[in-house]
Design a protein around this nucleic acid. Structure first.
Length: 109
DNA sequence: CTCTTGACTGAGG
DNA sequence: GCCTCAGCCAAGA
């Protein structure tokens, strides 16, 4: 499905959608894989449109493993619940074993 | 075209 | 370890 008309947003969706169960990644990692390493903010920005798509935005966090985007979810801890539901432990809006659950699109892809 | 905003990141104190 | 500053790029008004 390599649509030649892949927009920046859609590219982000494609990668985020491939995040395996119980794994997470960072905006920079996705952006880097897209070739726009300096566009990590755009990745998060694109996630705003991820609602209504098959994009598990709750699996995407910042480089610190902090759930920066939890405010964009419905509840106050919905994002955390989703992660914990997948086996990802979260502590104070931050992923505990971030190094272990981290998923690098440039390595496993 | 110009300005603002933003779910980021890395470097410096 | 914590806080602050600057750079980065894309979309919307």
């Amino acid at each position: 499905m390599q649509d030649n008309t892949l927009n920046f947003f859609e590219k982000v969706y494609e990668v985020a959608r491939q995040i395996p169960y119980g794994r997470v990644t960072s905006y920079g990692a996705i952006a880097n894989h897209l070739g726009a390493a300096r566009s990590a903010r755009m990745v998060g920005y694109a996630m705003n449109g991820s609602v209504g798509r098959d994009v598990p935005a709750h699996r995407v966090v910042n480089s610190n493993g902090l759930l920066t985007g939890k405010h964009h979810f419905e509840g106050t801890n919905l994002m955390q619940q989703l992660l914990e539901s997948e086996g990802v432990k979260v502590r104070n809006n931050q992923i505990v074993d971030f190094d272990k659950v981290f998923w690098d699109p440039g390595i496993e892809l």
